[in-house]
Simulated scan of single mutants.
Amino acid sequence: MTLLTGNIVVDGVRLAYWDQGRGMPVIFIHGTPSHSYEWRDVVPHVEAGGFRAVTYDLLGYGRSERPVDRDTSVAAQTDLLAHLLDALDIDRADIVAHDIGGAIGLRFAVARPERVRRLMVIDSVSYDSWPSPTWRRIIDEHLDDCMSMSQEAFDDLLTRQLAMTVADASLMTGDVLRSYLAPHRSALGRASFFEHQVRHYDAKYTEEISDALGRLTMPVRLLWGEEDQWQPLRYARRLSDAIPDADLVTVPDAGHFLMEDAPARVVEEIRNFLAAP
């Protein structure tokens, strides 16, 4: 299943996106190693709750363009988000963001607070929390070699990583696993994964906004899986302490891909947060 219903050209690049419903716009930003597929059990329910739901594949991810000469770092993706909102004629929106999407959401809220009504961050990278130890080892020892690996070796590597994203390993199997692997089922897909995603796993993008988090004034909710192996709960608590009046909600028996372990709970938390006075 894919949420995406079309394509839009934004700042000279093509993004695959979904834009459905009426009401306050809610922008969903996915993480890595992922694409908008991760929101499939969440976005339609938020839309049904009376919101305009927008999600998209980040540049270089999923079904969006994979440019050979364009920056796809967290900083560049943050700038591109502003262009996307402009293209969709959205002045102000709620943002729900996961993993590196959380870094994009936080950077956007720091740089353009007037455009963010509410911000929910789900199992986000922050401070020096990323890359995780396993990804750091891949980057340090094998990044250049990984770009030329066989499809079988790539699938094995990414499958091992994806298995770490859920508390219930049985959820990351079968059609679900194949859907997460699907954008990389070619030489271009494999190379793009390392160039557009892994090469930009860099904590500088979160560390450089750390001192600015205390200036955020919009309502912020942090939603976290208690069994997250990549972004430990201590980082959620650190963010909660840094962001004024931030609300931290933890979900037991759930990992980094909270939308896989507990989709109904994610929908409930989002709808309650967005509807709060």
Rank of each mutant, 00 (worst) to 15 (best):
A75P: 00
T55G: 05
G189S: 02
R265S: 06
R221V: 02
A203D: 13
M1F: 05
R115W: 12
W230F: 12
M172L: 05
F273P: 09
D99A: 07
R52G: 12
T159Y: 04
V96C: 09
V42M: 02
S73C: 12
L274F: 11
Y61T: 03
D241V: 04
Q197Y: 01
R271T: 15
Y235F: 15
G50H: 01
G12N: 06
W135A: 09
T134N: 14
L258R: 10
L213E: 04
V42C: 06
R190F: 01
R199Q: 13
A103T: 08
R265D: 06
L157P: 11
H35W: 15
D123K: 00
D71C: 09
A153K: 13
A167G: 12
D123L: 03
L188D: 14
E141H: 13
L158S: 06
S129D: 10
L177F: 07
S150D: 04
M259H: 14
E114C: 07
R92P: 04
T206P: 00
E226C: 02
P67R: 07
V96A: 09
L80N: 03
T32Q: 07
A187L: 02
M147I: 11
R63T: 10
I270F: 05
H98W: 15
G102L: 07
L4T: 10
L4V: 09
R40E: 00
M218R: 11
C146V: 00
D145C: 00
D261R: 01
E152S: 12
R115G: 05
M24W: 02
Y201K: 00
A191R: 14
D123R: 01
D89R: 12
D155G: 01
D228T: 08
R136V: 01
I122G: 02
A203M: 10
Y127M: 13
H35Y: 14
V251A: 06
G62F: 03
D211W: 11
P25C: 04
D19W: 01
A16E: 06
S132H: 01
G214A: 02
W224P: 03
G105D: 07
P277S: 13
V110C: 03
T134H: 09
L15W: 02
I104D: 09
Y127C: 08
F257I: 09
T165C: 10
L181R: 06
I95E: 03
L162Y: 03
V54R: 05
W18C: 15
G21H: 06
I243G: 06
P131M: 08
P244Y: 04
P33W: 04
R237S: 12
D19A: 05
M24S: 14
S148A: 14
V166A: 10
R199G: 04
S129I: 08
A153Y: 11
V249R: 13
T134K: 13
D91H: 07
N272K: 15
E195M: 12
N7E: 15
T250S: 11
F194H: 03
P232V: 14
T32A: 14
D140H: 11
R112I: 00
A182V: 02
L258I: 07
L274Y: 08
R237V: 09
L158D: 05
Y205S: 10
E269Q: 12
F154K: 01
P25I: 01
W39G: 00
S179C: 10
E269D: 13
W130R: 00
